[in-house]
Each structure stands twice: as structure tokens, then as C-alpha cells.
Write a protein that binds this DNA or RNA. Structure first.
Lengths: 214, 214
DNA sequence: CAGGCGACTATACGTGGGTATAGTTTGCTT
DNA sequence: AAGCAAACTATACCCACGTATAGTCGCCTG
């Protein structure tokens, strides 16, 4: 545990923020209450307001802290040998919060950062690729990012499906092995994909003149 | 538009249920209000209670209806030539509701059904696979199901990343093309996966005695 | 016509919880 | 020592919203 230097040592403001991170992650924004957060942090209701102003602002502070922490971790990781990033185990205490935030439509900076990272990676990988992808790297990166994060966002369901606790070491291990298998085995052959694309192309022609957006 | 035979023709109960589906999908369970649902359905607050008893029961009725509809669609699809299922465009009006429900931890039957379908598919595909997967089909299916659904659950972020509206025809088209590309190109080579697995195996030995759950 | 029942409305109740304000303690500067 | 600003508490306000109750209307059956 690198972070968390004993809750006693933290300033009240930091304790409130951490409590909020936990409550928002555990219950979601709506169900979390300022009173509950204050109690967990061991402070009065008023102090929360004093430091953060409003529930909404408190959430934004949590977001900001998350982004800062992620940046720090990211830079730390850049100096050391990568060793393959773990899309699920990253920053343990923030996992639930992050999953909630993403599911509820927040945490844009986080998602977008992930897309950017993946985009660079993909653009590089595309160079040593025989065929030409018909979708830009950014779009593919967005899809891949969503897929990677989905395991946290839908962790409750994944846990039920796999029969393990994703917070446990065994769960992480099993999930990683499943991921390795899925990531290293395409779900479709290039031929199947090409066939499906052909169908799309044909359908597209039919729709071309008949405008039907929205 | 196969469903929706003019809201006027529906019974009040059905109109309430549809309004609830919409409100829950649009705002989530907590933020949705019975009053808002009643207004959308064009009925009084009391009638909602008369028909469904409580907010929670109303949500359960929505879930049930969703599952029934899905079953019906599924059976319909079974009789016709498949043509490749679209994991995002399925049952338009329910997409948002389903995404919310999944993200908030509900809709277990739906997810589990998806896992079962994928499991059968994988078990069959495994037979014509050279190597032996070290994770059971069910676990892999759970991972794949989560990944497929993530595009709906995180649609807001995916839309931002891809720069399209996923409800539009163009958005669907672009998303499908991205999916085809991702599905038909593994993110890792089997060698890379094997190397990562080796790390896991080694790490596992190290952690065996030093207990560090949580 | 009686009577009964389901669909439906109007209104009230209670409270959880975000917000606001006034007051108290603590610690630092001059 | 004075004084003031920040940290912190206690308490009150207020309203949105889920829940509850009482009542009306229309239709069906005997």
C-alpha cells in the first residue's frame, strides 16, 4: 500500500475527499449522502460544505484528484519498465469510484486520456499491419477503451459470470488469464469480417439517397 | 417501427411502463421520479401506485418486460437466418434502459442469458482450436459479454471518442466497422499472451505463502 | 335499480437530505 | 495580548419525492 498514510495523519479535507471517493464508488452519486460522507470522515456535516461548497463540487474534487493520481502513476510507470499494464487492477481504491463515474457518464478526462494512449499505440501497430484498417485509430481506440473498462464497470456481473471475487487475488488472476485468451484470439476471421463489411457497404448504398439520420 | 402502436392505443398500464422504461433509462433509477413518469404517461401519480405498488416494483416490472421482449425477439431471430447479431442496435427503445440497468447492477437475467449463449458458442469454437484455452468457456464468455455490452453502457464516452451519435445510422455503421476490425484483429500475439501467462504463473508461486488478499 | 369492483384522481403526510446560517474553537501574525 | 482568519460544529430550513388515504367515475352483473 503505497498511498494511504494512516487516516489520522491526513488533513480533514483529504479525509473527506477519500470518504467521498468511497461513498460515491460504493453507492453511486445519488444514493451517497453528504451526511454519510461526513460521518465516515469523522467530521461534521458543515465542514464538508465549508471545504467543498456543494455535493456536486465535492464530486468534481474527487474527479480531479483521481485524474491527478492517475497522471502521477502514469508518469511513474513511464520511468520503469512497463511489464504490461493491468486494465483492472489499476489503482485499487479508485476502481469502484471510477467504474461508477464512467457508468454515470462522468470522468470524461480519464476516458479521453485512455483513448489517446490507445490511439498512439494503435497508430504504431498499424504500420506493421498487412491490410489497411477502414476505421481511424481513434475510433478503434475508443471501442477498445470501453471494452477494457467494461470489466470494472460491469464487475458485478462479470464476477457472477466467472464465479470469483474480482477484488481477490484469485479473481484478478483468473480475469487476467481470461483476458489474455480473449485478447490473443480474434472472435472473427478476417474473411468473416470482410463479408460483414460487404453487407454494410451494400446496405449503405441503398441508404445513400434516402436521408434518415436522427 | 414494429412495436409502439400509437401511445393512444395502449392501456394506461402499458403507457406507464413505457414511460418508466424511458425515464429510468434517461435519468437512472434514483433520479427518475414517479411523478415524472406519471406525467409522461399522461396519468395521475396515484394510478402508477395503483398499478405497480411501489417504485421498486415498477422497476421490476420494467425488467420483466424487457426480458420477455428479448425472449420474443430471440425466438423470432432463431427462425430467420441470423445474419450476424448487432450487439448495440438491438431493441432500440430499450438500449438506454438496459445500459442503465446493467451499470447499476441490475438486469442479471439478461446478462446471464448472454453469457450462456456465448458459452455455447465458445465451447463449439474451442473444438476447432489448436491450443487448449486455460480458462473455462463460461468465464471467457462473461468477459466477452461485458465487452460487448460496454459499448452501450459507456455509449456516452464512446460517442465522444468516435465523434458520432450512436443512435444515428452513421454512428451505428462506424461503430460496427470499428467492431469488425477489433474483433478480427487480436490485440496480442499468442506469444505475448504466453509470456504474460508465464509471469502470472511465476508471480503466483511467490504470492502463495505471503497472503495478501483484500 | 342495487351493488360492487377496477380504473383513476386529488390531496395529504412524513422524511431524507441538500443547503444555509450563526456560533465556537484554534492557531498564527503583529 | 489583541485580533482575525481559517477550521470546525450545531442547528435550522425547506422542498422534492415516495408513500398513503379517501374519494369519484364508469362499467358490468344479477
Amino acid at each position: 500500500m503505497t498511498t494511504a498514510p494512516d487516516p489520522e495523519d491526513l488533513t480533514a479535507r483529504a479525509r473527506i475527499r477519500d470518504a467521498a471517493l468511497w461513498h460515491f464508488g460504493e453507492h453511486g452519486y445519488e444514493r451517497a449522502t453528504i451526511r454519510g460522507i461526513a460521518e465516515t470522515a469523522g467530521v461534521s456535516l458543515g465542514l464538508v460544505r465549508h471545504h467543498f461548497g456543494s455535493k456536486q463540487a465535492l464530486r468534481e474534487a474527487c474527479d480531479e484528484h483521481l485524474v491527478r493520481t492517475m497522471h502521477r502513476l502514469h508518469e511513474e510507470a513511464a520511468t520503469r519498465p512497463p511489464g504490461g499494464l493491468n486494465p483492472v487492477a489499476m489503482m485499487g481504491p479508485y476502481r469502484r469510484y471510477l467504474a461508477r463515474a464512467l457508468a454515470e457518464g462522468w470522468a470524461e478526462p480519464f476516458f479521453d486520456e485512455m483513448v489517446r494512449i490507445g490511439e498512439r499505440w494503435l497508430a504504431q501497430a498499424d504500420e506493421s499491419r498487412p491490410d489497411v484498417p477502414d476505421v481511424d485509430p481513434r475510433s478503434r481506440s475508443a471501442v477498445i477503451a470501453a471494452m477494457a473498462l467494461s470489466l470494472s464497470v460491469l464487475s458485478k456481473h462479470v464476477e457472477r459470470g466467472m464465479g470469483v471475487d474480482l477484488d481477490s487475488v484469485e479473481g484478478q488472476d483468473k480475469l487476467l488469464r481470461a483476458l489474455l485468451d480473449v485478447y490473443s484470439h480474434p472472435l472473427m476471421t478476417p474473411e468473416e469480417a470482410a463479408a460483414a463489411r460487404a453487407v454494410l457497404d451494400r446496405g449503405h448504398g441503398q441508404q445513400a439517397d434516402r436521408r434518415r439520420g436522427e
